[in-house]
């Protein structure tokens, strides 16, 4: 009996040590960022220096604006696709699923090149994006397009899993009670998918905000906060890059903690 209890203890101890290592590994950079922060540089970057602070605030607002727009558009467009993939079988379904996951597997710079050659002014569909006024080269729309491209797999896969987790018999009952396909989707399937829609939205938004490699290729200007971090690091050094980075880390932490609290409720 005692030997068995010791076995459990040593097992739990091993698990705890292994877990602590990964938590320490993830936490250290966050703590280091705060330790490296120079309050004077932070004030200068965000408040006192008119040139630097104006650049920092506009980059931050641009990043938030582009990421919210790209995630919202992506969410709306992904719901029908995810529903289709979760509920129906059709020829070429696996090919479509593979295509959706491509942005997960390719290097970020390559993703940028792909967006540029497709939707850039001289790209294959450049005539279309130009005529619609959403040409991607060095423009706000370029940032939105890149953010949508890189976060699409996360959004579609999360929504697909959400739809799959809804018991199909509930939808069958609703139809047998007189609900049309539209009514059942609107009143049963969609409300039951809200947790996965929120999860997909938050994860995709985080992915969009974190993108830099592809944005550097497609739209260096206007500068997002990530591009500015790289530029300040190269021009002014680490302390200035840290003062920008810390705001992004805080923003992400606040969003994720708030989301977890909402989900818990």
């Amino acid at each position: 009996m005692l030997a068995r209890a010791r076995g459990v203890e040593s097992f739990l101890l091993t698990i705890a040590i292994a877990s602590s290592i990964i938590v320490f590994f993830l936490l250290s950079p966050i703590i280091a960022l705060f330790l490296m922060l120079d309050p004077r540089v932070f004030r200068e970057s965000w408040f006192t220096d008119p040139v630097l602070s104006s650049e920092a605030w506009s980059a931050l607002f641009l990043t938030i604006q582009a990421s919210l727009l790209s995630t919202t558009v992506l969410c709306i467009l992904s719901i029908p696709l995810a529903y289709l993939l979760a509920r129906k079988s059709f020829l070429g379904k696996q090919v479509v699923e593979g295509l959706i996951d491509i942005p997960l597997m390719i290097p970020h710079a390559v993703a940028g090149i792909m967006v540029l050659v497709a939707y850039g002014r001289r790209g294959v569909l450049g005539w279309l994006t130009s005529s619609l006024g959403v040409a991607v080269d060095d423009s706000f729309w370029g940032i939105v397009a890149v953010m949508m491209f890189v976060s699409a797999p996360i959004m579609v896969d999360t929504l697909k899993l959400g739809f799959k987790s809804i018991d199909e018999s509930i939808e069958l009952v609703a139809r047998s009670l007189g609900g049309s396909l539209w009514t059942v989707f609107r009143r049963i399937t969609l409300p039951l998918s809200i947790p996965s829609i929120l999860t997909g939205y938050i994860l995709s938004w985080a992915r969009a905000v974190s993108e830099v490699g592809a944005i550097l290729i497609v739209a260096y200007y206007p500068k997002t906060i990530n591009v500015l971090v790289i530029e300040w690091f190269n021009t002014y050094g680490l302390r200035y890059a840290v003062s920008l980075s810390i705001v992004l880390v805080l923003l992400s932490l606040i969003v994720f903690i708030a989301t977890r609290m909402v989900f818990r409720k």
Binding site: S169, L172, V173, R175, S176, L177, S180
Partner: peptide
Amino acid sequence: YPPEKRGFTLIPQDYGLFPH
């Protein structure tokens, strides 16, 4: 006829109550 036009109501094994 589509299911919603038949007037045949279904009660599945797990009752299929709408949880929300």
